[in-house]
Design a protein around this nucleic acid. Structure first.
Lengths: 215, 215, 215, 215
DNA sequence: CATGAATGAGCATTCATTCAT
DNA sequence: CATGAATGAATGCTCATTCAT
C-alpha cells in the first residue's frame, strides 16, 4: 500500500489523482458558467472559477469547443435522465409525455449554453448526450403511439423539435412571464392528441393540404 | 402642380441622389449580412459588401446598433406586412390565422438577425417594427375569437410566443429538414382550436392542473 | 443689375462677394470653436457653425493648420491691440505694464487655441499676429526701462515668457479659483521692479549665481 | 535569516519574475513615451517600445488610463522627492525654497505627460503623487513664513500655481532658450520676498487685504 | 504536469482630407 | 465655385490560444 513514491519506477499512477480532480473542477466550473452566460463566455472566467490555470484547462481541453462539448454531453445526459425519470414515474403513457416535457422544460430554463447547442445540433447524432435524449423521446413516442394516444404519424423528430422550440420559449419568457410557456406546452400537447382530425403534412414533399408560400 | 421641374431655381436637393444610393446599398448589404450571420457581424464586412468605406457607413449610421435597428425595423415591417396580407387574403378567420403563420414562418427562414432580435424583444413594444407585428396578431386573435374558432382564453401573447418558438424551429431545420416545421405548425394550430377541452393554465399562478416541477 | 450672366466675358467679379462672405463666416466660426475647445476640434464642427460645407472650408484653407493659423493671427492681433490700448491709456510706464498684463490676461481666459499656439510659438517670429504682441511688449519694456522702473537687464523675452506662463495659469484656474492668477501677477510684477537687488542670471551661460542642477 | 533559498520547497513565486520584468519594461517604456509625447500616445507605441504584445500591456493595465496613472504617480513621487531633498539640503528656509524650485523645474523639463496632468489636476488632491508635492510645498511655505522671509499672505496655492506656470515655461523654452526660465524663477521668487511692500489681492473678492481662502 | 503571463489578430469607432455632383 | 458625402488609416480595447517557467 505504500505505493506512489514519487521516484518509483512505475510512477505512472500518482499524478492522475490531481489531474482528475482538476478535470472535474474545470467541468463543474464550466457547467456553471456556460449555464449562466452561454457559449460566449471568456475562457478565463471558467479557469478562474475552477481554480486552475489556463494551461491546465487547455491541457485537458485543447479547444474551447472541446470543453463545451464535454460539459454539454454530461449536462444533456443528466437532463435527459431527469426527464426520462419523470416519464417513468408517470401513471400512463400520456402522462409520461406530459411529465417528460414538464420536467425537461423546467430543467432547461437556466442552462443557456445547453439550449444554444441543442438548437444547433438537435438533428446531429454525434453529440452523444443528445443521443440519449433522442432515445428517451423515441421510447415515449413508441409507447404513446402504441396506446393510440398520439396522433398518427407523429415522429420522434416532431417531439424533439417541439422540445427545442419550447425550450427556446422557456428561456425567452423566464424573466418577464415565467409561466407563459406552460400554456404553449398545453397547446402543443393538445395538438398532438390522437383525436385530432387531419393527418400531419409530410416533411419531405410540401404537397398535401399545405399551401406553400413565397420567398 | 408645375412644381419640381428638375432644373427649378431651388435645385438644392441634387447631391443626395448618390448618398441615398449609398445608404440603400449599405442597408441592403447589412440586411444580407445580418440575415446570414446575425448581429455579430463585423461592420467592415457590411461596408465591404455595400461597396463603401467605413466612414461612409458611419456617416449614415453613427453606431452599429443604429444600422441594425434601421435594417431590422424595415425587415420587421415588411415581414409583418407580408404576413398580414396573407391573412387578409384568406377566406375565413381560421384560414387567416393559418396563412399568417405560413407566410410569417416562410418569410423568416433566412433572417438570423431578425429572429435574434425578435427573441430578445418580443415582449418589448419599443422596436416599432415589432409593434406592427403585434398589432396584426392582436387583430387575428380578436377575429378568430369572435368567430369562436379559437380556444377560449388564448391571447395575443400566446400567438406571439408561438411565432417566436416556431420561427426558431424554422431556422434550425432549414438546412436539414426544410419542411419539418410545417408539422409543428399544424400541431400547434390544432391545439389552438376551439374544440380543445380544458382551459389553458394562467401564466401568473402555477396552480390548477399543472404540476409544477423542480429547480 | 442683370449683371453676372454666367458666361459673360468679364465674369471675374461676382463670385468674390460670396467667397469673402464665406471666408469670414468660416473664420468667425473657427474663432469661436477654437476658443472653446482648442486646436483639437473636429473640422466638421467649424464648417457646421460657419454654415458652409467642408469643401468650401478646404477651398479657403487647404489644411486645418492654415485655418488655425489665419484665425489665430487675427486673434493675436486683436488681443495685442486691446492690451496695447490698455497700456496706452495708463498714466505712467509702470501702470502701463500693469494694465497691459491685466488686460492681456483677462482677455485670454476663454481662448484655448490661442494660448496653445502661443505656448508653442512664443519664440517664433513667423506667426505675425504674435509679432505684434512682441512689438507692444518691446515698447513697454523700453519705456519702463527708460523710466528706470524696471529691474536692470529685463528683456522683452522675459516679459513675453511671463505672459505665457501666467496665461497658462489663468486658464488652469478659471473654473476653480478665478482670481488666483492676480496674485501671481502681482508677485511677478513686484519681482520685476527696479528696486530688486541682484541682477538676473544670463540665459545663455548657466553659471554665475545660479546653482545648476541635475539631469 | 536563512530563509529564501532560491530552491526552497515552497518555490511558488518563480514565474512572477518575468511578469515583473515585463511590467517594469512597460512602465519604463510608457514613462519614456509619455514624457516625449504626452498622454495622447498610441498604446501600441508603448507596447512596441516595451517589447511586449498588446495583450501583455492590457493584462497589467486594463485601461490606458491605468497605465498613465501608475506611471505618473511614480513620476510625481520621484519628482516631489527629489525636490524635497533639494529643499532639505539647503542651508536656510529661503534657500530651501529656491533650491526646491530649481530642482523641481529642472526635473520636469522632459516630462510632457506629467506637466499635462499637473496642469489638469493641480487643485485636485486625488492623484496621490501630486498630494506629496503639495505636502512638500506646504512645509516650505510654513517654514519660510515662520522665518518671516516670505511675503505675508502667501499660500501654498500661490507656490503651487507658480510651479505649474514655471513648469510650463520650462517646457516651452527647453529647446530654444534652455536657461531663460531661471530668470523667470528669480523674478517670481524676488516677488515673493518679505520686503515687498503691498499685500497680495485676495482671490475671491478683488479688494484689499489678503484673506487666503480656497475650496 | 500546472501555472498564468504573453501573444496578436480582430472589433467598433473617429477624423483630416479628397472628390463627385 | 459650393456642397457634403466618401475615404481609410488610426485608436483603445478583447479574447482564444500558446509557451516559458
Amino acid at each position: 500500500m505504500a505505493v506512489a513514491e514519487p521516484e518509483s519506477p512505475t510512477r505512472r499512477r500518482a499524478p492522475r489523482v490531481d489531474a482528475i480532480r482538476n478535470r472535474e473542477a474545470i467541468i463543474e466550473a464550466a457547467a456553471e458558467v456556460l449555464a449562466e452566460q452561454g457559449t460566449a463566455v471568456d475562457v478565463r472566467e471558467i479557469a478562474r472559477r475552477g481554480g486552475v490555470g489556463m494551461g491546465t484547462l487547455y491541457r485537458h481541453f485543447p479547444k474551447k469547443e472541446d470543453l463545451i462539448h464535454t460539459v454539454l454531453r454530461k449536462d444533456f445526459s443528466e437532463w435527459a435522465e431527469s426527464a426520462r425519470q419523470a416519464a417513468v414515474d408517470a401513471e400512463d403513457p400520456w402522462a409520461a409525455l406530459t411529465d417528460f416535457y414538464e420536467q425537461a422544460l423546467t430543467g432547461c430554463v437556466h442552462h443557456r449554453a445547453m439550449m444554444e447547442k441543442f438548437a444547433l445540433t438537435w438533428a446531429d447524432p454525434d453529440l452523444d448526450g443528445l443521443q440519449r435524449l433522442r432515445v428517451v423521446i423515441e421510447e415515449l413516442c413508441a409507447r404513446a403511439t402504441a396506446a393510440e394516444l398520439l396522433r398518427p404519424g407523429v415522429t420522434a423528430d416532431d417531439l424533439l423539435l417541439l422540445l427545442v422550440s419550447l425550450g427556446h420559449a422557456v428561456q425567452l419568457t423566464d424573466e418577464c412571464r415565467p409561466q407563459l410557456w406552460r400554456r404553449s406546452l398545453r397547446i402543443s400537447l393538445d395538438g398532438l392528441r390522437a383525436d385530432q382530425g387531419e393527418p400531419l403534412p409530410a416533411d419531405t414533399a410540401p404537397d398535401s393540404g399545405s399551401r406553400s408560400l413565397r420567398h
